[in-house]
């Protein structure tokens, strides 16, 4: 994949940690969320630093979506603390999160299919000109900017007037990411950006995540693909049934460990012993519990 031919090294990643002294932009302290009597998320610690990619991994229903909905202002947390720039916050609308510089690219991309590409690009943050009451959309400027930003993403569209619903899934994804990056986010939340994409398109998206990180953005990369996460991630949090299963930085965890945690972690090791009782199942290659050396969330305090 194209993203392996880069210049980044482990040292570079560690160097990236320098801004850590500035403190995290976004921090969750044992935050949680209950919907009525259902506890969707509980005791989650997360720190997002500038110029770092924080990967949040988890299976379906692990609470990934709930987590980003809290950070992006669609839902409010019901327990714990949520801090932006070390000040506790509670967003009631996504607008407030956007004003704090937290932009989100949703799984459904938050686009309006029947609206033209350029209108979607600037939706909610339209450029205007002229005094009120004649304040109007600066259509030329918006079209020009949208075209430039999309070209920077490597997307060339014949007609920005075409409804965004006519674009392919990958194109729409890139429009959504380009939009979030353009609007000067300090924290960019990407909700499974590679889930619906082909190999090549995923590569483009991963490159763009790295590019956003190098611009100094804190990126929260939600995925259930540990391979994609490991290519760009600096810090990994694995969610499982609404709680933190793993909270480790890049130098504390290998891709294999990450994959194992993703797949069920310690439970898998227990399953291995059960499978060992069954004849015909070769368990030699499976990892032992003690192989999973990465710190689990409970003992992971202060690791980052």
């Amino acid at each position: 994949m194209a993203s392996t031919n880069g210049t980044g090294t482990h040292g570079a990643v560690l160097a990236d940690k320098a801004p850590e002294k500035e403190g995290p932009i976004v921090e969750l302290r044992s935050a949680g969320k209950s919907y009525g009597n259902i506890r969707a998320l509980h005791g989650v610690d997360l720190k997002v630093f500038p110029s770092q990619v924080t990967c949040v991994l988890g299976d379906n229903g692990a609470g990934k979506s709930t987590l980003i909905k809290i950070i992006s202002g669609l839902h409010q947390h019901t327990e714990g603390e949520f801090l932006v720039d070390d000040a506790p916050v509670r967003f009631s609308t996504p607008r407030e999160a956007l004003d704090k510089g937290i932009a989100t690219v949703y799984q459904d991309l938050a686009v309006v299919p029947l609206m033209p590409v350029w209108r979607n690009f600037f939706l909610g943050s339209e450029m205007t000109k002229g005094p009120w009451p004649l304040r109007r959309l600066d259509i030329e400027q918006m079209k020009k900017t949208a075209d430039e930003e999309l070209r920077n993403m490597g997307i060339i569209l014949d007609d920005l007037e075409q409804p965004i619903g006519t674009l392919s899934g990958g194109q729409r994804q890139c429009v959504a990411i380009a939009r979030a990056v353009y609007f000067g986010a300090r924290v960019l939340i990407l909700d499974e950006p590679t889930a619906a994409l082909g190999v090549k398109q995923s590569g483009v998206v991963l490159k763009y995540i790295a590019a956003a990180r190098d611009r100094g953005l804190g990126v929260i990369f939600i995925t259930h693909n540990p391979h994609h996460a490991y290519m760009v991630g600096d810090h990994f949090s694995v969610l499982r049934l609404g709680t933190m299963e793993l909270n480790a930085s890049r130098d504390e965890v290998s891709l294999e460990e990450l994959t194992n945690h993703m797949a069920g972690g310690t439970e898998l090791a227990a399953l291995k012993h059960e499978l060992a009782q069954v004849r015909g199942v070769d368990v030699e290659e499976l990892p032992e519990e003690e192989d999973l050396t990465a710190p689990v969330a409970t003992s992971g305090e202060g690791k980052s």
């Binding site: 210049t7 990643v13 290519m231």
Partner: peptide, 9 residues
């Protein structure tokens, strides 16, 4: 795995 390239597409 090496971190991704640092140049935008």
């Amino acid at each position: 795995a090496e971190p991704a390239v640092t140049t935008p597409p």
